[in-house]
Structures are given as structure tokens and as C-alpha cells.
Design a protein around this nucleic acid. Structure first.
Lengths: 137, 137
DNA sequence: CGGGATCCTAGACGATACTG
DNA sequence: CAGTATCGTCTAGGATCCCG
């Protein structure tokens, strides 16, 4: 195996010492990949695509608040990283569908777990916020 | 229990219909909470704190690339949301330790799963990037 | 319908300096 | 050591227009 310039520096393995990538290292490729899937819109797009394939505007409606520009940009990034597949059906009007790769599906499963967990324990978060805020009016 | 203005609009439950929070809703409190834990520095801080308690500057060294300002800001946000605890020991020089609440620990466990999964499959991501980039030089 | 191109602003972010 | 304060930069992100 040749050396990968994007991997973590040799000898600085992070959480898992059996892999060459370390998100804690600033320049490691896994850091940017993590940012892409946990980014503001990345998480939501991946989570949405876990259940269904979506067309652009349907996805835009599903991910409440995303602009056209950011949705397009997010989809490009996720496609480049191998999480999302873009399928074009030439016809009038054009029909473009977005779905997940196997990698994307496994990733979104993890994200869905996180989201489900968070939604189930949001009452604790809300309580913490209330306490924190009222403690310093 | 009184009605919560931050919860998802009634009738618009998202992924999990047994909770009142929906990250897909723009104004739901769970959306901002999700952003706080999956944000650029939030993930890494929570992941770092899963194993150890850290002092400010040690954490700064651990999370490669974070600035003082962003670390302080991230810690404040996570403390407010009830994920992180700040413990001050008055002495000279001052000693301040950051650790996780039970909620924070459960959350970081999920994040660690995601990170581990990603690092283990980064070769697929790297390959996808190579293919994508060479396809349109 | 699916987006690319442009323009613009708010806020994210980093570097530095300073305080207890 | 553990921050806060200030300032400047930069880019994420929104609004708009337009084309196939």
C-alpha cells in the first residue's frame, strides 16, 4: 500500500488504532468527510434520503428552510463523497432523483439513530437551557 | 405540562411519531440542538470528552485546529444544552475541567459510533472523490 | 422542473491582545 | 492557566434572475 497524503500522519492514529484516518487531525480527509455528513444540511439530507428517493424540489420541501443553492451544493458534496447518487431521466419536464449508495445508507442509519436519540431526550435539553438561562437572567 | 413553543407544530411529527420534536422542522428546538452537537467543533469536543475529562488547553490541543474563541464558544453552547459540565477548582493557577453529563455521554457514544464507522470506510470516500474529480477535470 | 450564475450580507471564524 | 474582548477576514448561506 502506498502512502496516502490525505490520511492521518503516521503514528498519530486517533480513536481507532486499526485505521489510518483520524478526525482529530486537522488535515485528515476524514475530518472534511465528517463535516460534510454532519454539516447543517448534510445530516438532514442524508436522513431524508434514508426512507425515500427524492426529487430536488420534494427534498427542498422536506428539509424545511434549505435554500436552492445550499441544497444543490450539499447534494454535490455528498455525491462527490460517495454517499448520494444522482439519477437523471431525460424527459420533459426533466426528472432527477436522488438516492443513497450503500455507504450512504449505512451512514444515514447512524445519523437516524443519533436524531432519534436526540428527539427522545430533547426534554432534558430544553430543561438544561431553561436552567442555564434563568441562572444568569 | 404546558405547551412548548419550541416543539414541532402539532400534527407535523417527523421521523418518530411518539415524540413532539422534529429536526426537519425549521423552528423546532431539536434542530438547533442537532446543529450544536453535529457542528464543526461540537462533534469533536463531545467525542474527545467521552474518554477523558479535559482542561481547556489540553482540549484545545486535542481538537487540532480549533481556536480559543471557538472552543470557548462551543463549550458554552454544549454546557447550556446540558451535554457538558464545567468544574472550577479555585487555586493558583486556576484549574477548570470539562466533562460530560449522562446525556452528554450517551450522545458522545452515538457520535463515536458514527466517527468509527466513517474512519473505517474512508477508503470508499477517498475512492469516490477520486472518481468524481477525474471524471470532470 | 432542475438547477447554474450572480450578488450581497450576516455571522462564523481566526489572530492578537489583555485580564484575573 | 483560563479565559474575555476586539478586530478583521472570509465564506456560508439567502435572494434573485435566468436557462434548458
Amino acid at each position: 500500500m502506498t502512502s496516502s497524503p490525505e490520511a492521518a500522519p503516521a503514528g498519530s492514529a486517533g480513536l481507532f488504532d486499526d485505521v489510518a484516518f483520524d478526525v482529530f487531525a486537522r488535515r485528515c480527509a476524514s475530518r472534511s468527510a465528517l463535516e460534510n455528513i454532519t454539516g447543517r444540511w448534510g445530516v438532514l439530507v442524508l436522513a431524508a434520503l434514508h426512507d425515500d428517493t427524492y426529487r430536488f424540489n420534494a427534498l427542498r420541501r422536506r428539509v424545511d428552510g434549505v435554500s436552492e443553492k445550499m441544497l444543490a451544493q450539499t447534494l454535490h458534496t455528498l455525491e462527490r463523497d460517495g454517499f448520494v447518487v444522482r439519477t437523471v431521466q431525460r424527459q420533459i419536464p426533466p426528472r432527477v432523483e436522488y438516492s443513497l449508495t450503500p455507504l450512504g445508507r449505512d451512514t444515514s442509519a447512524k445519523l437516524l439513530e443519533l436524531i432519534g436519540f436526540l428527539e427522545h431526550r430533547m426534554d432534558e435539553v430544553v430543561a438544561a437551557r431553561d436552567g442555564y438561562d434563568s441562572a444568569r437572567d
